[in-house]
Structure formats: C-alpha cells, structure tokens
C-alpha cells in the first residue's frame, strides 16, 4: 500500500462532486429541448378569438415568418411579456399569431382592448386540445416559424428583450425581417 492510494477515496469523492455539479446544472427542465424544432408546425383548426364562427387553420398562418405566442389572461408572466410583444409588433414585419390558451373569450378580448393587441390574428384553445397538439406545457410559450411553417425556435417562458436580442432577432434577420429604427418610446 503506497501513500498515494490513501487519496483514492478523496479522488472518487471529487469525481462524484464534479459529475453531480455538471449533471444537475444540465437539468433545467424549463429549457428541455422542444421535440418540434426543425419540424413542421402541426396541422390545426381553431376558432378565431374575435369571430368564433371563423376557423383558422395552419394554412392561414403560413406565407411569412411568424411568431406563435401561447398566452392567457390568467398567466401573470404573459402580462410581463405583453409589452415586448407590442414592441415587436410595432417595430417588425413579423406576423404575430396568438393562441389564447385555456382562457375565457370575454376576458381575453377585454385584455387585448385594455393593454393593446399585438397580434395579427388570435385563435382560441379553450380546453388545451390545441396546446397538446403543439407540445405546449403552459403559458407563455412562443414558436418561431419560417414562411413554410417550419419551427425554427421555441421559447418556453416569456419573450423578453434579451430573448429578442439573442434568439429571435438574429433568426428573423436571416429570414429578412429586421427591426425598424423607431424612436424608443419612453415612460412605460
């Protein structure tokens, strides 16, 4: 038995620490990889928020780069996210499609009337059927689609300025959508 072998348990302990540290830091379940990245956005048919007799399908949202944003009035993070969506709607030509998730139509309409409506169209998913179809686990979640309806990126949690700058803007720039240079609106 050499002296060095006395350090074997310490070495094993440090190894366990390192593996554990690394392993647990990977376990950010909010950022679990979306299964749908690089896949076509699923087929769907859902009523429009403003005219429920009208059905919106996948074909209706194709044609140009699109952000599909899953939101609800009961979702507090969605309220925090709303200002950024308004900013994106104002400053870019990206199409914004809202999926009003497990919500009340009247409340949703009032919310958009009160806080502004960043969406080009809004569909309703009152009982979460469309949500499961999209692999959504809650709100807010946001998909970035190209004009052909392929999912390029998915954000689970809010779209904020950092996500816009680091994730959405560069991908949209590649699709030819750039932020317009409007004067910053102060105050809010």
């Amino acid at each position: 038995m050499s002296r060095l072998s006395l350090f074997v348990p310490l070495g094993v302990f440090v190894l366990i620490l390192v593996v554990g540290w690394f392993g647990f830091s990977l376990d950010d379940r909010r950022q679990m990889p979306s299964a749908l990245i690089d896949k076509p956005f699923p087929e769907f048919a859902a009523p429009s928020l403003y005219d429920q007799a009208r059905t919106v399908t996948r074909a209706d949202i194709l044609g140009r780069p699109t952000l599909v944003n899953v939101w609800a009035t009961w979702c507090t993070t969605c309220k925090a996210e709303h200002a950024e969506l308004m900013r994106i709607a104002e400053r870019t030509d990206v199409q914004l499609v809202g999926v009003n998730y497990k919500d009340d139509v009247a409340k949703a309409q009032r919310w958009l009337a009160d806080f502004g409506d960043p969406y080009d169209m809004v569909v309703v998913d009152p009982d979460g059927v469309l949500g499961v179809e999209l692999g959504v686990t809650g709100a807010p979640e946001t998909f970035l689609l190209d004009g052909e309806g392929k999912i390029l990126y998915k954000r689970v949690a809010d779209v904020n300025r950092r996500i816009w700058r680091d994730e959405l803007a560069p991908r949209l720039a590649r699709l030819g959508i750039v932020e317009k240079d409007l004067p910053e609106q102060g105050g809010r």
Partner: peptide, 8 residues
C-alpha cells in the same frame, strides 16, 4: 406524445 414533448 414523443413527437410533441420529446424523450422527456
């Protein structure tokens, strides 16, 4: 389900 929610 795997297609939509992944291996998770």
């Amino acid at each position: 389900l795997r297609e939509r929610y992944g291996d998770f």
